Amino acid sequence: MDKFESMKRFVTVAQVGSFTRATEMLGLPKSSVSASIKSLEQQINTRLLQRSTRQINLTRDGERYLTKCLSILEQVDSLDSEFQQPSLISGCLHVDMPSRFAANILLPHLNSWYERYPDISIKLRCNDQRADLIKDGVDCVIRAGHLGDSELVAMPLTQLTVINCVSADYAEKYGKPQSVNDLAHHYLIDYAQNLQTQTAVFEHIAQHHLQLVEMKSRLQVNNTDAYLYACLSGLGIAQLPAMSAEPYLARGELVEILPDYPAPVIPLSIIYASRRQVPKRLSLFMAWLQELTNNAVKTNLIMQARSRQSATK
């Protein structure tokens, strides 16, 4: 085996911190990966990994070597891609995104990606929780909300319009609130990623400022699918992205409430590791995803306009 292949195996193990997870990602026997790294250590005459029964840590030399390896591998990948036609670029992308985004935006159009780039496969993980790009071996993640400071790069996709909703059954049973003062008599489905928040709040914009109204809540969820279906099941008020809510509003399964108290828009971004040179297959995927999202936003705006016209007739 050449040194270049051993370097790639070392990088995978170092990033995920586990031989078991690395071998799963590489599709290779554990003994083969372990032997590659031992051979690499012998060639450069230094220990790269500190092994124990529970975990694997980089030595100081290993940390330096990993940085150099990443730079070399990125340059080689970029160089290879530069001289290839886009349709001939190959490889695998590891992508992480919320399940609703995958269902509404990505999966209905994924065949068009394979038509353009038949040799770029995708490993898709649907998760609302923040991913560790390096440790989880992820190329990019799609996340909603404001992002904190980090060494990662965030490429804006769009701003998600949010609609205040209840199910038709909930509206019939409890009525529709006409003002924020009426919220004291209603229940809110509380969405929280870490399930640690103590107080459920209804968010809305008034006079260009964010206002928070504390509400009663009997249910807290940390998943976008659960949030939508809890609302459809009549368990309370939800503040749903228009992309998710619009089909159910059109069928009368959901009802919009408090249109004069709009929730703040939610920024949607593609997040990827800071690199001097982004692999060509990743830059192609991000551009394609931007195109898909723009088209979905336009379609949704048209649907919303038609719904409002029908409601006024």
Rank of each mutant, 00 (worst) to 15 (best):
E5M: 05
E5P: 02
T12Q: 13
Q15M: 13
V16C: 15
V16D: 07
G17V: 06
R21C: 04
A22R: 05
A22T: 08
E24D: 12
P29T: 00
S32V: 07
A35H: 08
K38E: 11
I44T: 00
N45T: 01
R47C: 00
L49W: 05
Q50F: 14
I56K: 01
G62L: 00
L66G: 02
K68L: 11
E74H: 15
E74R: 15
D77R: 14
D77F: 11
C92V: 15
C92I: 15
L93Y: 07
L93G: 01
V95E: 00
R100N: 11
R100Y: 06
F101C: 06
L110P: 03
N111E: 01
N111I: 02
W113K: 07
R116S: 08
D119W: 04
I120A: 09
L124M: 11
R125S: 13
D128G: 06
R130P: 01
G137D: 04
D139Y: 10
V141E: 14
S150H: 06
L157M: 04
T158N: 11
N164Q: 09
C165G: 00
K173E: 10
Y174L: 04
P177M: 08
V180E: 04
H185L: 11
Y191M: 08
T197M: 02
F202Y: 14
E203A: 15
E203P: 14
H204N: 10
N223R: 07
A226W: 02
Y229V: 08
C231S: 09
L232F: 13
L232I: 09
S233I: 00
Q239W: 11
P241E: 07
L249C: 01
D260S: 11
Y261L: 10
P264D: 15
P267D: 00
L268P: 01
I270P: 02
Y272E: 06
R275N: 03
Q277I: 12
S283G: 05
L284Y: 12
F285N: 07
W288L: 03
W288K: 01
Q290R: 07
N294R: 14
I302F: 10
Q304L: 06
S310F: 10
